[in-house]
Design a protein around this nucleic acid. Structure first.
Lengths: 237, 237
DNA sequence: GCCGCAATGTACGAACTAGTGCGTTTTGGT
DNA sequence: ACCAAAACGCACTAGTTCGTACATTGCGGC
């Protein structure tokens, strides 16, 4: 099995090589025009690595395997990211950067507070549902006691905009008399995150133990509404 | 370092042995009496392994390290558990068995429904807070798509009693007119779990990003009440 | 007593894995 | 056109890691 794997691997490589030289034809040297593109290479490595780390964890992921899936070589991983942990940190940083960017894109400040909150909750729920790689990376990072995200520079670990969004909504909600006065935005965000996160993070053990399928459209929709409902009831005066 | 450890272990064993023979009285000669005790050995291995797996994950844990912390040898791990994954499965099974046992111990059926629910929520919250090894094992298992818990026999992956407890509480709550009629015990349990779980599982990344300390007694107490409050508001008619 | 199996310890190996030395090619500046 | 630096690939290694062959001791039944 392991041997077979090696053979397969080697064969694939050889085929690629012969394809290349066959395409080159006569002036053999020509076919191999390598194009240097550092940004694309780095981005490609991070993309593959994101998948691998989120799938197998930091210790479970294999640099060789990442390298193989990449359009470049293992040497380049170390050239750009220094070490396995360095690559992992880059992956974390990139994932958090992306989520931070997207989170700001919603325009909720003009809508009535309760409506805005409901929409924010549903958006968070759906975002986490649609970005399971990110969720899994967060799990992995917490298994490691958050020690790697702690190493990122201050600006890179900056709190998501969610808190500010919530603060704004809550303020307007209180003013409009539709929310109670003692709400803490961070506490509220924690609840919204918790409910959305669990739905993705623990679905495997939960559905095995309770023998339910959490992935059907019906189950997802029901759960989303339950979560939104719970949050709305929570903020009511 | 390694040698020193070995020596320590050996000495401890010898002392135990001489104690035993001293108690026995007569034939002092056998200082090196190895006592076969399969149950104790297995339990000891599982205890250490539980800690290691919950700390470093399945791929991160090292069999050699587990063996070293054990009062026995690596050979015994393979003797009783066959493989690394076999040991991991035994750890999972044991952890779930323990939680199942404890969960049934609370007597809530006699208390008024709302009070019973509040107590159940606080208990769940505190149990998860106090059993972080278990929480981390669940995270690890979900990183692996729950594939190992799925391999456990049906009875071993049987749903926790929590659902029945909740069903009972909800039924009584509806009857007493203090809870709404359309509550789903599983959905409710999911919410309670989610809120309690997040508090432990994601504390590292969450506190780093939002620069709050979630471990102080004050923060813990506040969070527990927020969670209980949220659930109580959720079930209200 | 004693015999056979269960329980245990020691030492070792084959495969894997993160990381690198070194040579080659591409590119941008002058 | 030329050159230094950046980008890149190949093949290797030193250390680790799961797993096991082999030898030894304890123990329950007869």
């Amino acid at each position: 099995m392991r041997v077979a794997r090696q053979v397969t691997k080697r064969r694939a490589k050889d085929e690629a090589a012969s394809h290349a030289s066959a395409g080159g034809g006569k002036v053999v040297a020509r076919a191999k025009t390598r194009t240097n593109d550092p940004d694309r290479t780095k981005a490609n490595i991070i993309e593959i690595a994101t998948h691998e780390f989120s799938e197998k964890g930091l210790s479970g992921a294999r640099i060789d395997e990442i390298a193989e899936r990449t359009r470049t070589s293992k040497r380049m991983i170390y050239y750009y990211f220094e070490s396995k942990e360095g690559l992992y940190r880059a992956v974390l940083e990139d994932s958090y950067r992306r989520i931070r960017t997207i989170e700001a894109s919603l325009d909720l400040e003009n809508k009535p507070p309760l409506e805005a909150l409901a929409q924010h909750v549903r958006f968070t729920f759906d975002y986490q549902l649609g970005n399971q790689e990110f969720i899994r990376l967060v799990m992995v990072e917490n298994i490691h006691h958050g020690q790697h995200i702690a190493q990122l520079s201050r600006t890179q670990q900056e709190g998501m905009g969610a808190i500010e969004t919530l603060r704004n909504i809550v303020e307007r909600g209180i003013e409009a008399g539709v929310m109670r006065k003692d709400l803490d935005p961070i506490d509220l965000h924690m609840s919204i995150s918790a409910l959305s996160f669990f739905n993705v993070a623990n679905r495997h053990t939960f559905s095995t133990i309770f023998k339910v399928d959490m992935t059907t459209p019906a189950a997802t929709a029901a759960r989303r509404e339950s979560v939104a409902d719970m949050i709305l009831r929570f903020v009511a005066p």
